[in-house]
Design a protein around this nucleic acid. Structure first.
Length: 345
DNA sequence: AAAATTTGACCCGT
DNA sequence: ACGGGTCAAATTTT
């Protein structure tokens, strides 16, 4: 059984077992005599485990919960196979090797910013392939997170020179970064943001269609979302958009975006022509900067939020004003080939 | 020596 | 069969 598990499964089981173990430890600290700090640390670790487990499933952990259905025996000592997700009317086995959907986001950045390479977008990348793409003038490069082997981080990105404007590259980020970053470029960017007063606050534009907006807003980060996956075998609930403007932290959509799609760590000071019926909301980076601990290994929505808000500053000197950031659903294979079984055994 | 990149081969879905 | 994505050996860079 264990030998047949692929990497995600091992990671998932590992994280869940870790969480279970930590919860046990927490139980031991429930007496009033036990230290508050010890409990806090354990709670943090448990949350971290859950975050990681969810991210393996490409689920952000904050969106509306799915209808989880457990078979009668699943609360006992049964294998994870008994955990079933009920999406639509089909019962689905989490560990079946089948397609699930994860989102990706696409950004267009000018050449020379560094983001097209393996740095400058907040993460380090290792190139693992290049391919000539039919109908494209330039080859597409494939990168994965440098920490794939050491930390099992599954984030990837594809970089391709734009055909329309060869001075731009299109970067498609896929998957979550589950790695912890030794250095936090986002923090550096944040501090530079405070120095750099060109952009008193950043905005995230959420739009539901591709209607063009007349006014271009410099250094607005635009997120375009589409549900591209029309297949019936969704594992997870498709995106749903709020019909009203986003209400900060209570909004599932916002946190889902931040958590899920900016894990790629792009830097996007550029903007696209916005839409006429976009929902705008602004978040003060200063506010967010004070709202979390920077030294935390755990990837929190706040840390990602900071990343998204501050990252643009690394590219803010660019004269370019256009960025299309699309947030699409793409397919992701659960049986992702992974060649380092020694990592979890 | 280790890490990163290059590149043809291979795999898999359509 | 074809095209996109990944693997992995060879090569280059650090």
């Amino acid at each position: 059984m264990e030998k047949n598990m692929d990497f995600e499964q091992k990671t998932l089981v590992n994280e869940l077992m870790e969480g279970k173990e930590l919860a046990k430890q927490l139980m031991g600290h429930l007496q009033p005599s036990s230290s508050h700090e010890a409990r806090d640390v354990l709670v943090e670790k448990i949350l971290s485990s859950y975050e990681k487990a969810l991210s393996v499933l490409n689920w952000d952990g904050k969106s509306k919960p799915l209808a989880l259905e457990f078979s009668p025996c699943s609360f006992g000592n049964t294998s994870p196979r008994s955990v079933i997700i009920d999406q639509d009317t089909n019962h689905r086995d989490v560990f079946k090797k089948r397609k699930i959907t994860v989102r990706s986001e696409q950004v267009r950045v000018p050449l020379g910013t560094g983001a097209e390479g393996n740095l400058e977008d907040g993460h380090s990348w290792r190139k693992y392939g290049q391919k000539d793409i039919l109908g494209a003038n330039h080859p597409r490069s494939y990168f994965r997170c440098t920490h794939r082997k050491t930390q099992g981080c599954l984030a990837t990105k594809q970089v391709q020179r734009s055909d329309q404007d060869p001075s731009f590259v299109d970067i498609t980020y896929k998957g979550h970064h589950t790695c912890r970053r030794a250095s936090q470029p986002a923090i550096v960017a944040s501090s530079s943001l405070t120095k750099n007063n060109h952009f008193p606050h950043n905005e995230v534009v959420v739009k539901e269609d591709k209607i063009r907006q007349s006014q271009v807003k410099p250094f607005t980060l635009e997120v375009k979302t589409e549900d591209l996956d029309t297949r019936e075998d969704h594992m997870f609930a498709p995106f749903s958009f709020p019909s009203t403007p986003i209400e900060s932290e209570h909004n599932h959509f916002f946190s889902e975006m931040i958590e899920t799609d900016f894990a790629g760590g792009f830097s996007s000071p550029f903007i696209s022509p916005a839409t006429s019926d976009s929902a705008y909301f602004s978040v003060s980076p200063c506010h967010k900067m004070t709202s979390f601990g920077l030294a935390n290994n755990v990837q929190t929505p706040e840390s990602d939020l900071t990343e998204i808000l501050s990252a643009p500053t690394s590219l803010t000197n660019s004269p370019m004003g256009d960025l299309d950031l699309t947030l699409d659903n793409v397919d992701f294979e659960m049986n992702f080939p992974f060649d380092s079984p020694e990592f979890f055994s």
